[in-house]
């Protein structure tokens, strides 16, 4: 997200806020759904997250990346809702202080979702059909109505592109 948009977001510009939502709304929803496992609660968490983001916009430092800031608000919001829903059960699994593998999964989900939202729709769809729906290249070709060769080249390009965006995850 460009610096000018972030400056306008910080200044309370509604168009810039909408741009922030368009860029990070899906990733925040992914975080919320990963923690809460319920679409309705995840929608509530996403809404509350962005209301907080809006209200705290003036405290955001445009010199810093906005994604980790939004992620922290989203995770905290979802955990708060989780605790209200299940006040006595399984808190240690999601407790902020434990920083266990569950939270690492959530961070990875956020990063992967942001990367997916950065690539073209064509590339995204071929990755979704392959990994989420488990389709083979011929099955994807049939589903999309394109030659198998096109699927192969598009899939190769899409995965290479995705990996470039997620390179930092491989270094941790």
């Amino acid at each position: 997200m460009d610096r000018e948009t972030l400056e306008r977001f910080r200044a309370g510009d509604e168009t810039a806020f909408k741009a922030v939502y368009q860029r990070y709304g899906g990733a925040v929803y992914t975080v919320a759904l990963s923690i809460l496992g319920d679409r309705g609660l995840a929608a509530d968490a996403t809404q509350i997250t962005f209301v907080k983001v809006w209200r705290a916009a003036s405290t955001y430092d445009p010199e810093r990346e906005i994604a980790p800031w939004i992620y922290a608000i989203a995770r905290r919001t979802a955990i708060d809702i989780y605790r209200k829903q299940k006040p006595t059960a399984e808190l240690t699994e999601i407790d902020d202080a434990t920083a266990g593998p569950g939270l690492e999964d959530v961070w990875e989900a956020f990063e992967v979702r942001m990367a997916l939202d950065s690539i073209s729709d064509d590339e995204r769809e071929v990755i979704r059909l392959s990994h989420f729906e488990g389709l083979s290249h011929p099955e994807i070709a049939e589903r999309l109505g394109i030659p198998v060769g096109t699927v192969k080249s598009r899939s190769h390009r899409a995965h290479k592109h995705l990996l470039e965006l997620l390179e930092h995850l491989l270094e941790t």
């Binding site: 929803y29 759904l33 995840a42 992967v112 997916l116 990994h131 989420f132």
Partner: peptide, 17 residues
Amino acid sequence: TVLGREETWAEPPAGLL
């Protein structure tokens, strides 16, 4: 593994913004 999960692909409800 993340790419195979439902939450990775789920979209927030229309009208949420």
